[in-house]
Structure formats: structure tokens, C-alpha cells
Design a protein around this nucleic acid. Structure first.
Length: 335
DNA sequence: GGACTATATTACATTACCTCA
DNA sequence: CTTGAGGTAATGTAATATAGT
């Protein structure tokens, strides 16, 4: 069961819910960004893909979105100055210019300009940055000629075009591997602890906060969920392995005990025909207790007989080995 | 109300890149 | 300098849910 904090109506398309609401929220973030949105919507066609397609249709007003870039962040911006966007919005303490800034490994390619969030809904933009202008131009071409108005396709195009447009990748043939900075990873990690999935608004806010593309945030959460699941699987596997070893050992011990009892039966038939009432089981601890009448005989019996007291409970009541995950889920559901 | 379509989201498998020993 | 392993960002695809017609 996942609890998610939602500040917007996630059921509505992002282009309508977020952009329309952004100015009305009157947060400093929205004002500082100063983005202007123009949506071209064909009459009678309300679907997102038609809107996103923008300049493809000659009679439609191209989607236009201008957003001033973020104010550069000082190199040594500490992590603690990051704010969870969805929390900051409600508190009004958002740092609109918060970003990862320079990365510990000095990979500027990670720094996607402030328009990043607009690529999520296929918006075009302009920026003095080289990567930005490159992206802008190529995006116009691809969205106009591709015929794929799909939001995800456009986003993917934007990703690829954005990579190609980076200064570090001039041939455009290689896939750029962007290493997230420690600060970005830590912030994403903290965010993941809050909730392992993001609604579109949270994703956009996080992307803006960390100066990443929304797609990057989305991918990071996908991979993070996969890692979590993999780790849990490993834990469960290890637990099962231990259970298996325990049961194997117990089985071996019981087999040995059975052999000894059989041997005892053949050597001392009279002793083994003692009435069953000489053995009693404690209802609370489920241990076998020997009665006074059989105490002397039990003392002379092999040590295997004593072991039976501890192994009987297993036979009487099968053990259940729930996964730690199942326990955690049960505990979570109960709480 | 059911069928169909479009879109969005997610899990999952895989690839590609980067770092380091 | 080369190489292989491990980590992880990114990609592709199928399944599923939801909304609109």
C-alpha cells in the first residue's frame, strides 16, 4: 500500500492542471520562473497529442512556452538547502533556483536548463544555452515531421535531441551517460523514502528542484524501484536458504533419532512397549515431559530420547517461515 | 452499459556508458 | 594502457488503468 501526497489533480492532464494552476498558486516559484504558456488547441480536438503536436498543423497556434533559465547556483550549495518540492509548495518556502549546481564529478552535461520541465509536455522553448538552442531547433523538426504526437515520444525525442545537442557529444551517435551528482542522488533518495512513486506534479517539481529533466527523475525512480525489489529478492532468497539449511539439519537429526529408536526397540522390546501415558506433553511449551514412573527408564535411555522433546513441537505444529517482506507488509497494513 | 480507442504509467528486461580495481 | 566487473542511467516493450467516444 502506497501513500502518496498529491497537491494537484493528477487525474487531469498535466498540461491543463499544472500550467493552468501555476500562476494561481502565486508561489514565488511560479513568479520567479516567469514562464509564459501558450497552448494551441484545435477546435473540437481536445486530446493532448493534438495540442502537443503544436506547430505541425499550419492552422494551429504552435505551442509556445518561454521560461527564463534558473539563476545559477553557487558551487557549494549544501544538500540541506534542497526542499521537497511538494512540501515547499505548501509551505511557500520553495527555493526556485535550487539546483544541483555543479556536480562533484564536474559533469556539466547533467545540468539541463530550466526549461526541462516543459519538455515533459512537449513544449518548445528558447534559451541562450547551446544545448537549449540545439534542442529547440531539432525538436521543432521532429515534432513537425514525425507524425507522432505522443507525449512520451516527444519526450523521448526531446531526450535524444537534448543529448545530441550537448556540447560534449558532437557526433550524436553515442548515448550519453549522465552521472547524477551526490546531492541529486541523495535528494532523490530522500524523496524515494517519502514515496516510491511520483505523480506528474511531483515529478516535475523534483526535476525543477534538481535541475534535471522530468524523464530523468522518472527513470531514476523506475530504476530505484527495481533496485529495491532486487535487494528484497536477495534478502528473501537468503532467508529461504537459511530456512532450508535449518530444515535439512533438523531432518538429518530426526532421521538419526529414528534410527536410534528403532535400534532401541529391537534390543529392548519390553521397554518400548511401555504405555504411552508415561509421556506427557506440556500444553504451554509443547515439550514432552517424562512421568515419574518412566523417569528411571528414561534416564537409561539414549540421549536421542531427550532430543525428541525438542523436536516434537516441529512435528506437532508445522512452522511457518514468512518472508521478511510479508512481515513488513503485514505490519504496514496493520499500522 | 459495453466495446473500442487513445493515452499514461509502470514493471521488467536489456543495453550502453562510466568508474575502478 | 588494457581489461573485466559492477553500478547505474537510459531504452524498448508489454501489461494495465483510465478517460473519452
Amino acid at each position: 500500500m502506497e501513500l502518496a501526497l498529491s497537491l494537484g489533480d493528477s487525474s487531469k492532464p498535466f498540461t491543463a492542471s499544472f500550467i493552468d494552476k501555476a500562476p494561481s498558486t502565486s508561489t514565488s516559484k511560479a513568479k520567479d520562473l516567469e514562464f509564459r504558456v501558450g497552448l494551441g488547441i484545435n477546435a473540437g480536438e481536445g486530446r493532448g497529442k493534438d495540442v502537443i503536436r503544436g506547430g505541425a498543423d499550419s492552422d494551429a497556434v504552435p505551442l509556445q512556452l518561454d521560461l527564463l533559465p534558473f539563476t545559477p547556483v553557487p558551487h557549494s550549495k549544501p544538500l540541506q538547502q534542497f526542499r521537497f518540492p511538494w512540501l515547499a509548495e505548501t509551505l511557500g518556502s520553495a527555493e526556485p533556483d535550487s539546483s544541483a549546481g555543479e556536480h562533484s564529478r564536474g559533469l556539466d552535461v547533467n545540468r539541463f536548463p530550466a526549461f526541462a520541465e516543459e519538455t515533459d509536455d512537449g513544449g518548445a522553448h528558447s534559451s541562450p544555452n547551446s544545448a537549449v538552442s540545439s534542442f529547440h531547433m531539432e525538436f521543432g523538426i521532429s515534432s513537425g515531421s514525425g507524425g507522432r504526437g505522443n507525449k512520451r515520444d516527444l519526450e523521448a525525442d526531446a531526450e535524444r535531441d537534448g543529448s545530441r545537442g550537448s556540447d560534449d557529444d558532437e557526433n550524436g551517435l553515442t548515448r550519453k551517460k549522465l552521472r547524477l551528482s551526490k546531492e541529486q542522488s541523495a535528494f532523490l533518495e530522500e524523496s524515494f523514502k517519502e514515496h516510491s512513486t511520483l505523480n506528474p506534479k511531483q515529478k516535475l517539481a523534483l526535476a525543477k528542484q534538481l535541475n534535471l529533466r522530468p524523464r530523468q527523475v522518472e527513470v531514476w525512480f523506475q530504476n530505484r524501484r527495481a533496485r529495491t525489489k532486487l535487494k528484497q529478492t536477495e534478502i528473501d532468497c537468503e532467508y529461504l536458504k537459511r530456512c532450508c539449511e535449518t530444515l535439512t539439519e533438523e531432518n538429518r537429526r530426526l532421521q538419526k533419532e529414528l534410527q536410534e529408536l528403532r535400534a532401541l526397540k529391537t534390543s529392548q522390546p519390553f521397554y518400548m512397549q511401555l504405555p504411552a501415558t508415561t509421556l506427557t506433553m506440556c500444553p504451554s511449551c509443547e515439550r514432552v515431559a517424562t512421568s515419574s514412573s518412566s523417569a528411571a527408564a528414561a534416564a537409561s535411555a539414549s540421549s536421542a530420547a531427550a532430543n525428541s522433546a525438542t523436536t516434537l513441537p516441529l512435528l506437532a505444529k508445522p512452522r511457518v517461515y514468512p518472508f521478511p517482506q510479508a512481515q513488513a507488509q503485514a505490519h504496514k497494513a496493520a499500522s
